[in-house]
Simulated assay, not measured.
Amino acid sequence: MEKQELFKIGDVAKMFHISVGSLRHYEKFGLLKPEYTDQETGYRYYSTRQFECLNTIRYLRVLDMPLDQIAEFLRNRDVKKIQEMLQQQKKRVVMKQNELQIIEKKIENRLQQLQDTLSSELDTVRIIQTGPRRITWIRNKLRPKSYLDLETSIRQLEKQQENTVVFPGKVGIGITKERLLKKQYETYDIVFLVLDQEDNYNGIVEELPNETSVAIRFCGSHADAPVYYAKLANFILAHKLTITGFSKEITMIDYGITNDITKFVTEIQIPVAAI
């Protein structure tokens, strides 16, 4: 075969708007071997009769078809076969769209949370209303001085999960009602994870009802919390409220987001009711 009937690999790549690396990958995968390879120079050449095959590969790749399925089709081209492949690929695309929608929702949740946190009024006690929340939790006594002290508990919460469900601003610790009433703020009893509605958690999930809470946000992390628990306790006493459940303490901004400790923000919520 005369070389003038052939096209260099670089020229073919330009014609089909793909990379030389892609053509080499197709060759390695057995999809499209060069018509001729110069044994002295190693240059690869393709003929026009291979262009139809390359067009088919490129079309199926645009549809995100896996290379092994493309190879199978090229070995046994058939109308029914391509119909089946396209139907299967359509199902995969729909699944991927659903996954991307979930990812988009998670991103939106985190953006809203960050915006809310950055606009917080710090060191001010507020009475807030929270809607129903899904959480999973474990009892674990600890006295965290940094986020590293929570790692073992976080791994327990994430155990056996197919996808990551632990993100900044979702992991919290709590003090039981009994300990709050005794004003014991140094030791925590619960580690919990707030689940987004789209989270598919493989384990025991508790649905928290609507809650009225006294809350405070402050610059700092868990090690700085006791003084703010005392501030909340004074507010509860002054406004004749009673504690109805365990506290929910979450670092909204910490090392997971920034190394600047002056930008850390932690929130404490204590559920209450009127006496």
Rank of each mutant, 00 (worst) to 15 (best):
M1S: 15
E2L: 13
E5P: 12
L6N: 11
L6R: 04
F7Y: 15
F7G: 10
D11P: 05
A13P: 00
A13S: 02
M15L: 10
F16V: 01
H17Q: 09
R24E: 11
K28L: 05
G30L: 01
L31I: 05
L31R: 06
P34K: 01
E35K: 02
D38P: 01
D38R: 00
G42S: 04
Y43F: 11
Y45K: 03
T48D: 13
Q50E: 11
C53E: 12
N55Q: 10
N55M: 09
N55D: 10
I57Q: 08
R58S: 14
V62W: 08
V62F: 12
L67D: 09
L67E: 06
D68M: 04
D68K: 10
Q69C: 08
A71D: 08
E72K: 11
E72F: 09
V79H: 06
K81E: 06
E84C: 06
M85R: 07
Q87R: 13
Q88W: 03
Q88L: 07
Q88A: 12
Q89G: 07
M95H: 13
K96F: 05
Q97T: 06
N98W: 01
E99H: 08
E99A: 12
Q101Y: 13
K105H: 14
N109V: 06
N109W: 03
L114E: 09
D116Q: 14
T117A: 15
T117L: 05
S119Q: 11
T130Y: 02
R134I: 01
T136P: 09
W137E: 15
K141A: 15
R143Y: 14
Y147N: 12
L148N: 15
D149G: 13
Q156A: 14
E162Y: 04
T164H: 12
V166W: 06
P168S: 12
P168H: 07
G172P: 03
L180T: 01
L180K: 04
L180I: 00
K182S: 06
E186N: 14
D189V: 00
I190H: 11
I190K: 07
V191T: 03
F192S: 04
V194C: 08
V194Q: 07
L195F: 00
D196N: 05
N200M: 02
G203L: 00
I204M: 10
V205A: 07
E206D: 08
E206H: 10
P209K: 00
N210M: 02
S213I: 00
V214M: 01
I216A: 04
C219I: 09
G220Q: 04
A223E: 11
A223T: 12
A225M: 05
P226I: 08
L232D: 07
L232F: 09
A233H: 10
F235Y: 15
T244R: 04
S247L: 04
E249D: 14
T251N: 15
Y255A: 14
Y255Q: 15
I257Q: 13
T258P: 11
T258L: 02
N259Y: 11
D260N: 15
K263Y: 05
K263D: 12
V265M: 02
V265K: 01
T266F: 07
E267W: 00
I268K: 02
Q269D: 03
V272W: 05
A273I: 03
A273R: 10
A274P: 05
A274V: 09
